[in-house]
Computed example of a mutant assay.
Amino acid sequence: MKIIGIVGAHNSGKTTFISKLITKLKEKGYKVVAIKHDPKGKAKVDTEGKDSYKFQEAGADQVILVSPTKITTFNKIEKELHPNEIIEKFVNKSADLVILEGFKWYKGFDKFEVIRKEESRELLLKDNEELKGVITDYYPFNPSFDINNVNDFIKYLENNYLKGD
């Protein structure tokens, strides 16, 4: 199982790019896990009033929602976990690729930064040795990948992360 991080500023296009990437990787038969960082804890993950929400509000340490096609689990934790701990504890080990969205300041995995021309900024990870490439519509970096076309990035992943060991 290989791990990469897609990082960037707020509203840089990370989620859109990752969604397209997952679609194409799944079409090619890869097993993909996506983990999104919510550093402020503001993401809406359940609907108020629903049973799973009520169980969480009642104080359950873990809530598991089971349907015929998926299992969703909500786990209370005492401290924020490093991505490697999340992967070790929660990720299906048969995955070919884990894509982390965010976690830009965490160490221990290769990162690809998303930056668009309209952002008018420098790279957040410009001098970070874990930055392995840039996903962009203009920024000069080697390697760089077209933010509007995931196919070149997939070829890069297949050559550098998804090839058989």
Rank of each mutant, 00 (worst) to 15 (best):
L100G: 13
H37M: 01
H37P: 03
E80F: 02
S52G: 15
K155A: 04
D61L: 07
K76T: 01
Q62T: 14
H37L: 01
F103G: 05
P143Q: 06
K42E: 09
D137H: 07
T47V: 10
V32R: 07
G59L: 12
P68Q: 13
A60F: 01
K111W: 05
L131W: 01
L100N: 12
V63C: 14
L131D: 02
D61I: 06
K20V: 15
T69H: 06
K155F: 00
N84H: 08
V66D: 14
I22E: 14
E158P: 08
F90N: 07
G164D: 10
L157H: 06
D61R: 14
T16S: 05
T47F: 08
A58W: 00
I4Y: 06
V91H: 01
P140A: 10
K89L: 11
I35A: 10
K104N: 05
T16D: 09
L157T: 03
N142Y: 04
H82A: 11
E57A: 06
D96F: 09
K155I: 00
T15Q: 08
Y161H: 10
H10C: 15
I87R: 06
V134M: 01
E129P: 14
E129A: 09
G59T: 10
K24Q: 13
E101F: 02
G5K: 06
G5S: 07
N142G: 04
M1N: 04
K93W: 02
L100R: 15
F55G: 05
V134T: 03
S19Q: 10
K111M: 03
S52Y: 10
K155D: 05
N11A: 13
D110N: 12
V66Q: 11
